[in-house]
Design a protein around this nucleic acid. Structure first.
Lengths: 243, 243
DNA sequence: CGCACACTGTGTGCGCCATACACAGACCAT
DNA sequence: ATGGTCTGTGTATGGCGCACACAGTGTGCG
């Protein structure tokens, strides 16, 4: 039984009792707030120990009294950016519940696109992360799925939301820039993906309504793909029920 | 009509005609080989301009004669790590074909786990990347899906493979380390996810056969989830056919 | 009541990184 | 042959994460 890393101890509120020495001047939540502010404004690249410290009005090295390493800073940011998971309406069926969950997740990623840039080293163990996991699993209450199947299904939706967010997240905050990048991309793709060598891609480009790959992956498109994922889960549910 | 970035020009073999000056001592493919060697051994973090240059026996700055910036290095690495897409057996149905495609993709990610660490800035435009896209789209030949639907379906499978690889890719090459990390994770999760506050997670942990979240996401588990995704696509196909 | 000592925030410094820039030499078109 | 352009190189800059020593602070224990 190994000790929990210090970050997790702090996030779970395992307080050290009163100790000698000066009182801490701030709290990890202050660090999180400052770091999130920087990341929202300039992406994860704008978050450095010195910038965060400057934002708080302290020196760089003071942060290391609260956080063991930069990776821990990411953990704290993540934990604060995703606060409480949505309360799922028990009146809805599982599709309605997991859809609401997925949309809440997507909203979080849209609000804080830098989350997708965080290098993931370990699976999550912090309180809010687990709360989100639990919330996603609970969406399948009432279905005949086994706990493992619920986990797989929740992970599948989780992966889908992350993946689509990744596609649309060109990370530019200005919508004009996004539109321009899309235009440039389709132009180049049209030039490079000639119908003789890339007939499938070329066919996709012929319909100018949808902007093609990496076009506006907006709400409708998101829901459409999510429906496909949920149809797959539904198939497994009915299959489980009949066996 | 803007010029293509230099990296893409080079990858597509748009050669500059013979020019004055000394002949280049090597080629971007040499850079790619050296960088991939480093990344395979020590992850993407082990790839720096100086390390790559040292591997080639040149100075750091010489690389900038071939590549405009570090991001371009990533593009070249990606292009070389994923060589030719698999040739899909036309005898198979779409499920068989896209399954083979997904497995080939997964194999590539397992061979070069650092691919998942590359920060994605722009959608792909390099030759092999497009060839993989085309190959994935072609898997749906013979189905009534529209080109846009094929794109969505291919992206869905693509996202799924990436996502599952992300889960299993604890990035450690030593299987013992992975197993140890899994053990530690389940231990901690069992301690933190108490049944009263996290009943769903706790239920998942009660079945010790599957190691729970981030456990060995091996071939069987991969195929199981992929089946779910393909079932969803199948639902859309039949729905398309009937309308 | 006082004091030892754990703990605080700070300053300095190290090694690594990406990359800008100036330079000496190599080579092709003319 | 020679001018101009391209090559690889050396040097320099600003940023980064973080180790470490230090002076001051405040609590628990004697």
């Amino acid at each position: 039984m190994e000790e929990l890393p210090r970050v997790l101890q702090q996030l779970w509120g395992i307080e050290g009792r009163s100790r000698p020495g000066p009182k801490p001047a701030f709290h990890i939540s202050d660090i999180a707030r400052a770091a999130i502010k920087l990341a929202d404004a300039g992406g994860l690249g704008a978050v450095s120990m010195s910038k965060v410290a400057a934002e708080l009005g302290f020196t760089t090295m003071s942060l290391y009294r609260y956080v063991d390493a930069k990776d821990d800073l990411y953990v704290v940011m993540l934990e604060h950016a995703f606060a409480e998971p949505p309360v799922l309406d028990p009146e809805l069926d599982w599709r309605g519940r997991i859809t609401a969950w997925a949309e809440a997740f997507r909203d979080g990623l849209r609000r804080h696109p830098w989350i997708l840039q965080i290098p993931i080293q370990e699976p999550p163990l912090s309180p809010n992360q687990l709360a989100w996991m639990e919330s996603g699993l609970d969406a399948f209450d009432g279905t005949p799925l086994t706990p493992q199947d619920r986990l797989s299904a929740m992970l599948l939706v989780n992966i889908y939301v992350r993946g689509t967010a990744q596609l649309t997240a060109n990370m530019r905050t200005e919508p004009d820039e996004v539109r321009e990048a899309d235009r440039l991309y389709t132009e180049r793709l049209t030039m490079l993906a000639t119908p003789d060598r890339f007939p499938g891609i070329a066919a996709t480009l012929e319909q100018p309504l949808d902007e093609g790959y990496a076009g506006d992956f907006d709400a409708a498109e998101f829901g459409f793909g999510l429906t496909t994922v949920l149809d797959g889960i539904a198939t497994r549910i009915t299959h489980t029920r009949t066996t």
